[in-house]
Design a protein around this nucleic acid. Sequence first.
DNA 1: CTATACCTTAATGTATACATTGATGTATGC
DNA 2: GCATACATCAATGTATACATTAAGGTATAG
Lengths: 220, 220
Amino acid sequence: MGAISNVERAVAALRQMIFAGELTPGSDHLETELAEKLGMSRTPVREAALMLQAQGLVELRPRRGIRISPVSAQDMSDIYDILTELESLAAARAAEAGYSVSDLETLAAAITDMDACLSHDDLRGWAEADDRFHRELVRLGRNARLSMIVSVMRDQVRRARATTLFIRPAPVQSNADHRAVYDAIAQGDASRAHDTHHAHRRHARDMLVALLDKHQFHGL
Amino acid sequence: MGAISNVERAVAALRQMIFAGELTPGSDHLETELAEKLGMSRTPVREAALMLQAQGLVELRPRRGIRISPVSAQDMSDIYDILTELESLAAARAAEAGYSVSDLETLAAAITDMDACLSHDDLRGWAEADDRFHRELVRLGRNARLSMIVSVMRDQVRRARATTLFIRPAPVQSNADHRAVYDAIAQGDASRAHDTHHAHRRHARDMLVALLDKHQFHGL
DNA sequence: CTATACCTTAATGTATACATTGATGTATGC
DNA sequence: GCATACATCAATGTATACATTAAGGTATAG
């Protein structure tokens, strides 16, 4: 009664290979190849590819294979725009929900962890805690569809972060922003939560786009 | 070289049946049944179902069939929240883009058509023109991912509109709002375009949710 | 009468065989 | 040398056969 299908395995494996950079953006892969590599038939691989296509991670191009979607600087800018709006909405809704301090424990822990990681120059750890913060923030907004969309968008950002994490300035301001958002939510101040997070994301976007432009980043 | 696959046919047919109410929300349908009804094998039907699942129109439930996703009043509220933020962003970006009057022709035409339909009490025609307005607005925002998300969300709204269109108040204020958004875009005033459209959508949301609550709308 | 364990079976999940198609190479005519 | 038409064939799109699984029924025990 394990109930873990090959399709799920294929989805997980393909995602992992994409995020690890094993399948490079822009590259094409035949269904048959991938099926053999994953030790299953074409059917589940194809179904997995269809799902990933719906999330924008790959494109099925008839006769040319499954293409790993490239992500341009323009794409990043578009994605950040969407994240900015939707996460800010979530922050506002979270503030309106009137959560208690104990409800906000996970959020607070993520902030603490980010601080700790920063003081140890552990950028990977920081990125992981940052992910946790944003994921929890969106969850608190209580809008299942919004959570889904944001998680798909963040997947795409994740692919570029491998490139940017170590060339971006230390995320010190970032953490002050997170605390401000937390405070606004804890105090039930929806519009401050919204605006603070909005400014935070917008700043991050401008920084990232400038970084990508500067480094001639044209796809990956 | 027609190149219209069975999967595409299946997607189109299923969408049509869902929007027409032939497949009622909450109902289950076996892959085999649908395949027979559409005159094809299970494979393309299944692939179509996977795609529609990614868009939230159906759910594949092992051994119980393909379920047409029900949409609750809460879902509607969530969806409108998302539409409000993303369309407002598109309006702001459209204003920033500095479009000329001729670039905005389609948008203006939609507004004119809405007026014309209203004066003839043609609610269906109005709804169609309203759709066109919102679709064009988003297109002008020039963010392909945003357009995709909005179009998926609007598909879900469309299913409820059959119910609400004829019990809602006449959309007179609505048209004044559209004109105001148009003017802000034409004048390149991004923040006014954003705020005006935001208020418009928020108002529509509140009205719709109140309507659905009042009519004991609990899913469909 | 209720609960539990088992069994049946229908529906899905997967593999495979086959049909279709369009990209690419080849030959022919100009 | 260049363009066009045709032939080839590999990869996908589709059908079908088969394996797996869990929902619902049945029987048995308490």
